[in-house]
Design a protein around this nucleic acid. Structure first.
Length: 908
RNA sequence: GCAGGGGUAGCGAAGCGGUCAAACGCGUAAGGCUUAGGACCUUAUGGCUCAGGCCUUCGAGGGUUCAAAUCCCUCCUCCUGCACCA
């Protein structure tokens, strides 16, 4: 019968915590508040351990702060905005086998599946119910009174309307066109989840430059407008079909058949389309719109009708493909030799030719060469004197200037194509469509970005390494389309045809938590902009407000801002950025978020835990097998944003150590020894653990924290006993520390241990975090105990080598004057580690000095003490004698082998 | 393409200028305990030694320093993110 039975202990304390309503905090002006959140979650399937990782981390922090006396608020809501639930529902409706199986695997009945296939909300509500149970089972200290569901709780929808009206008032809502990957067959945006292939591809902007020839236009597609001065000729491919398009501007464009199809999605109206035979233009001249030069059109089979417009300009001196093809096809001869170079790169005379030599003329080699040349020229190229007024302009600058000039002349347009092939689930090839009249949040606003950067600067970020990607995400932030037509969501208040999109309605909802308990009980129509303006911004006019207004205002002022937001790393470049942006846009500076904590994923055999991979474990299953406290160990699986391996093998160790603690607590009263040096050591170590662990918890370094508090902590107990510690008071203090320091991670069993030790107050009740006194920490005693440990290990080695079982061990402590010398040398290493310099300083030529100075790098940072060392060995000699089963004599020694910190050993 | 982060023992993972052959965990081996297995406890686990010692290592190659896994440069190599999608 095991001593430690998690089930019994956990249900006991769960009940007590619930009765005390510890997780349902109210305003308390005598206590400092701490408000922590984790993002809302989509209930489209059962929760698994992978999810729990983030929440447990947040919960541990919440409990840590509670123990330190803070009034902690930890709410949780759900998200039903957007496509995921509608998508799942649709897949069930279509009886997609994978979707149906997934539901059945999760214990959903046929009847319910039928219901879900017509009602996505029912699906969401079904799973969100299981989430609440699972979060509770996993010991989350969540205040469920404040629960709400994004885009479903009508009161919350009023809040989102207020958010958008406020953004609009602030000038942060703009309207414009926006490119998206589009399915031409289904006439809908083609999100990553809807793609058969081409996940991650996005619209790529390219330049169209109009070369004129007779009455029509040859629209060249290019990514490098800066090479316009070096155009030798144009390439068309007589093997593919071309069309002549008459646009509503009256222009006639010659483009590939493929592009003729795609251009219609790019806001171009095609009035007339006819076949066009490009052989009629081969050899004729077109006009370079930048410098008016005549450039001939040549035939080239490498031109791909599917890439850009199907009209390509040839820049042989700056594009490997052009160079090779111009040579092979004899185009160079027709042109009368090599064209001029127009971009210089320092130290590169023949960049293109060298690149071709280096990578070869195979298609793959040319591809590499092209990338190489583009990169070189873009990063360090400068336009030369062949470029008229653009001479001496760096390529990146010249590119924009040339675009502007061409645009002025009416010879330039931006166009888009997918950055790679995209295929829709329906089988159609994706194109880029420009959406008109789309509503954007104006995240690219300069002032807004500056405020965001300021907010991030002041923000505590755990781990600190996330700051760099966060700042770069902010710098690269563009306007974000904030509304869409499909899925679930709150209608845009001023244009009800659009629904507010998920990432946009989930940016400041944490403010709503502060008032949720009150607001959720009100009628939605009471929650108008005027009320919210008062509650959140303090803007008040003289007309009457609902009775709840004052209460809500107080709640918001007390709880806000968010003190800690915990989430997984994939949300950093999107949600976290928008979260910050909307806060700094809408709220006063003292309401900006204070800290964020980012973690990786929980992985199994290096694979992310996910339902589709089938490598998940359900919460109730895990809790059933291991107990809540042990399952919570997942939160300590990794520090930083690296992925964390779910490893159950140390759960056994945890059980074992907990039982050790239980055993010791039972017999605490039997320890009646005096306090000795080893007591001083144990307390020093415990103080150090307390100090370091407090810092670890504060920085969300939970792996390190559990290492110190639990594994090192229990190890310390064993060490204390092994080295002859026998004082009940010390032991009690050590256990008291260990129990408290571990409570955030193991809230139930530590509460049990605390009460077993006679603790009357709940650890969970607050102000239970252990203090420590810096003066308790003694480096000297730590070092001297290490000397004892090393000596024991040396004795062991020696007996092994000598192959004897010792009868007598003499431990010869070095003489006091040697300690003086030793300490002087150690002191000197603070200035230098140069052996000769130290020798000069200490002016000693003793053998000991020689030995120590042989490698000054190996000297420790702090000194030793003769009396302490002697006394410690005297005190521990009984323990040593017990280990080796022999007599142990501690004496002073003249032997050269006796060095401070390394006594001479004589074994017989 | 742009941006960011890595490469340390059989594995996971600390260390981020000096007490470092490298914490801790897993794995492996031996011993103890046990009717047996498991669990647990002890010890060992880079190489060579065997009176407490020596040598070699932290992706590769250079450099800075009295001192580098740690700082700088080059190269190789592996991840991750890039927007309307949560």
């Amino acid at each position: 019968m095991p001593k430690y039975d998690p089930k019994v202990i956990e249900s006991k304390w769960r009940k007590i915590f619930g009765e005390k309503k510890i997780y349902e905090p109210e305003i308390d002006n005598d206590r400092e508040k701490f408000f922590t959140t984790v993002p809302v979650i989509y209930p489209t399937g059962l929760l698994h351990l992978g999810h729990l990782y983030t929440w447990t981390r947040a919960d541990i922090y919440a409990r840590f702060m509670r123990m330190r006396g803070f009034n902690v608020l930890f709410p949780q809501g759900f998200h039903m905005t957007g496509g995921p639930m509608v998508g799942m529902s649709l897949r069930l409706k279509n009886r997609e086998k994978k979707a149906v199986d997934m539901m059945k695997d999760q214990g959903v009945s046929d009847e319910e599946i039928e219901k879900f296939s017509n009602d996505p909300i029912a699906l969401g509500l079904y799973f969100s119910d299981t989430y609440i149970k699972d979060f509770d089972a996993a010991g989350m200290s969540i205040d469920w009174r404040r629960l709400f569901i994004l885009s479903q709780t009508p009161q919350y929808s009023k809040f989102v309307e207020w958010q958008f009206n406020t953004l609009k008032r602030l000038g942060l809502i703009v309207q414009g066109t926006h490119p998206v990957i589009w399915c031409p067959k289904e006439d809908t945006p083609l999100g990553d989840h809807d793609r058969l292939s081409g996940e991650g591809e996005s619209p790529l902007k390219f330049s169209v430059i109009k070369f004129r020839m007779e009455d029509y236009i040859l629209p060249v597609g290019t990514l490098r407008p800066e090479t316009m001065f070096g155009v030798a000729n144009l390439w068309l491919n007589s093997r593919i079909a071309y069309k002549k398009l008459t646009l509503d501007s009256g222009e006639e464009w010659i483009v590939s058949g493929e592009f003729a199809r795609k251009i219609r999605y790019l806001l171009k109206t095609v009035k007339k389309e006819e076949d066009f035979d490009v052989s009629s233009v081969m050899g004729k001249n077109a006009k370079n719109p930048l410098n008016g030069a005549d450039v001939p059109v040549f035939d080239a089979d490498f031109v791909d009708g599917d890439a850009m417009t199907g009209v390509v300009m040839s820049v042989p001196m700056h594009a490997p493909v052009d160079f090779v093809y111009a040579n092979r096809s004899g185009a160079l001869e027709k042109l009368g030799g090599r064209p001029k170079k127009i971009i210089d790169v320092e130290g590169e005379e023949n960049l293109v030719e060298d690149a071709i030599k280096r990578f070869g003329e195979t298609p793959e080699g040319l591809d590499k060469a092209t990338k190489y040349v583009y990169k070189k020229e873009f990063s360090s190229g400068i336009l030369n004197t062949n470029c008229g007024k653009f001479a001496n302009t760096a390529v990146d600058k010249a590119r924009e200037k040339i675009k502007d000039l061409l645009r002025e002349k009416g010879s330039y347009e931006d166009m888009y194509e997918p950055s790679g092939a995209v295929v829709c689930r329906c089988g159609a090839n994706g194109v880029v469509k420009l959406l008109e009249n789309q509503w954007f949040i104006h995240y690219s606003d300069r002032e807004l970005k500056e405020k965001m950067l300021r907010a991030v600067e002041e923000m505590k970020i755990c781990p600190e390494e996330v700051r760099v990607p966060l700042v770069s995400a902010i710098n690269g932030l563009e306007d974000k389309a904030a509304a869409r037509h499909g899925g679930l969501g709150t209608p845009l208040p001023w244009d009800k045809n659009w629904l507010i999109e998920p990432l946009s309605d989930s940016t400041i909802y944490m403010a709503y938590y502060t008032i949720a308990d009150t607001a959720n009980k009100m009628r939605p129509e009471e929650l108008d902009d005027r009320l919210f303006d008062y509650v959140f911004l303090g803007k008040k006019d003289s007309s009457p407000y609902p009775d709840e207004a004052e209460k809500m205002r107080k709640e918001f002022l007390y709880w806000y801002p968010v003190d800690m937001r915990t989430t997984a790393k994939e949300l950093v470049p999107n949600h976290m950025v928008f979260f910050i942006a909307n806060h700094v846009a809408i709220f006063d500076r003292d309401k900006w978020p204070k800290a964020m904590s980012i973690n990786g994923w929980l992985v199994v055999n290096k694979q992310k835990m996910s339902k589709s991979k089938g490598n998940t474990m359900g919460i109730s299953e895990a809790v059933e097998s291991y107990g809540t406290d042990s399952v919570r160990l997942i939160a300590t699986a990794s520090d930083g944003i690296d992925d964390a391996e779910w490893d159950t093998s140390n759960i056994n160790t945890v059980y074992q150590k907990i039982e050790t603690l239980m055993d010791l607590i039972e017999i605490l009263d039997d320890f009646k020894g005096h306090k000795k040096l080893i007591d001083k050591y144990a307390l020093s170590k415990a103080a150090r653990i307390t100090r370091d662990a407090t810092e670890d918890y504060g920085n969300m370094l939970l792996r390190s924290a559990v290492q110190r508090t639990f594994f090192d902590g229990v190890q310390l107990l064993k060490e204390y006993l092994e080295l002859g510690g026998y004082n009940g008071e010390t032991l009690r203090e050590l256990i008291r520390r260990i129990v408290r320091l571990n409570h955030p991670i193991f809230p139930f069993v530590t509460e049990e241990l605390n009460s077993a030790m006679g603790g009357k107050e709940l650890l969970e009740g607050g102000k239970s975090w252990p203090e420590y006194d810096e003066r308790e920490i003694s480096r000297l005693i730590d070092s001297e105990v290490e000397v004892v440990r090393n000596t024991i290990s040396d004795i062991r080695n020696l007996t092994k080598i000598l192959k004897i079982s010792p009868k007598k061990v003499r431990i010869g402590i070095s003489k006091p004057e040697n300690f003086d010398l030793y300490n002087r040398i150690v002191e000197e290493t603070k200035n230098t580690r140069n052996a000769n310099e130290i020798r000069k300083k200490i002016r000693s030529s003793s053998k000991l000095a020689d030995k120590l100075l042989k490698n000054p790098n190996r000297l420790p940072e702090n000194g030793l003490d003769h009396d302490t060392e002697t006394k410690l060995f005297e005190e521990t000699k009984e323990s040593i004698s017990r280990i080796f089963g022999c007599e142990v004599i501690v004496e002073s020694s003249d032997d050269d082998k006796a060095i401070p910190g390394k006594p001479a050993l004589t074994i017989s």
